[in-house]
Amino acid sequence: MPNPFNQQVIEEFRANHGRVGGYFEGARLLLLTTTGARTGTPHTTPVGYYPDGGEQVLVIASAGGAPQHPDWFRNLVANPRATVEDGLFTYEAEAVVLERAERDRVFARAVEADPGWAEYQAKTDRVIPVVALRQVPQDGPPSMNAGSIAEHLQVAHDAFRRELALIREEFRKTGASLGAQLRVNCLTLCQGLHNHHTGEGLGLFPFLADRHPELAPALDRLGKEHERIAELLEQLRGVIADGQPEPGRVLSQVEHLTAELEAHLTYEEEQLIPLLTAVGTPE
């Protein structure tokens, strides 16, 4: 059984699609369910994470600098298969403990983003492990943490809003510098938005166009907005790819993307969510 603090976070996380308050407010958080090394029973733990692009996220087994590894890490060593809930999807992941050279590189990236990790390492003699959680491919559609397409769309939009807010806050905390982890965060966001809009263009929009011909003008506008956002994402990638980009340029690009994306998301919600609520889930 989770301790009372963890249980409260777990319940709030699941009730609010990844949004929590209190100690974890404003943090990137996931729920990690591991198999007990001794008991064989499932254990769910809220864990902070870092994006790492593609189908992988990183978690750090700091235990606040305690002398022993956290239980969830020992469980993953015994059984590397785990379940991850990110607020939008639930998926199976394979845990890979990073080897020392890669661990050191990634841990330095994390310290650059948050010096607290170095403080935890200084408190303990153990080398704090870094674990990559790699999504296991599955057949069929992903498991959505939503009861309908309408709810899923809203939750996805809110997740992008939160991530953009986090990135802007990270710029503010670092004096608008572009550290290695902040680069990864921006590029992961770019890929996520690209995937989301590609999925809408191939699936959701044709589904609605077939059932609601009157929606053609709105869908046409949304398609054009997708193209515009794709241009902004490519510009952001280009600025980040510069060897030593002027940080203000990157932040300006993020702010521009945020403004246009927010307008797009709001319009899409106004036009599509009422219809999606009415039609439910397509067969």
Rank of each mutant, 00 (worst) to 15 (best):
F5R: 13
Q7F: 11
Q7S: 13
Q7H: 12
Q8N: 12
E11C: 04
E12D: 15
V20K: 01
Y23R: 13
E25C: 05
G26P: 03
D52Q: 10
D52M: 07
I60P: 00
G64S: 13
G64M: 00
P70A: 12
L76P: 12
V77P: 07
A78C: 12
T83N: 07
V97H: 07
E99T: 06
A101M: 05
P129H: 04
P129R: 03
L133R: 08
S143A: 15
A150S: 12
Q154G: 05
H157W: 11
A159D: 15
A159H: 14
E163A: 10
L166C: 01
L166V: 08
I167C: 04
I167S: 02
E170I: 00
F171H: 12
L178Y: 02
C186N: 05
C190A: 15
H194R: 14
G203A: 10
F207W: 06
A209T: 11
D210Q: 14
D210I: 00
L219Y: 02
H226E: 02
H226D: 09
A230Y: 07
A230R: 00
E231K: 04
L236H: 07
R237D: 05
R237N: 03
R237K: 14
A241N: 04
G243Y: 01
P245L: 08
E246P: 05
V250E: 02
V254Q: 05
H256V: 11
L257T: 05
E262A: 11
H264W: 01
L265W: 15
Y267K: 01
Q271I: 07
A278T: 06
V279C: 03
E283V: 05
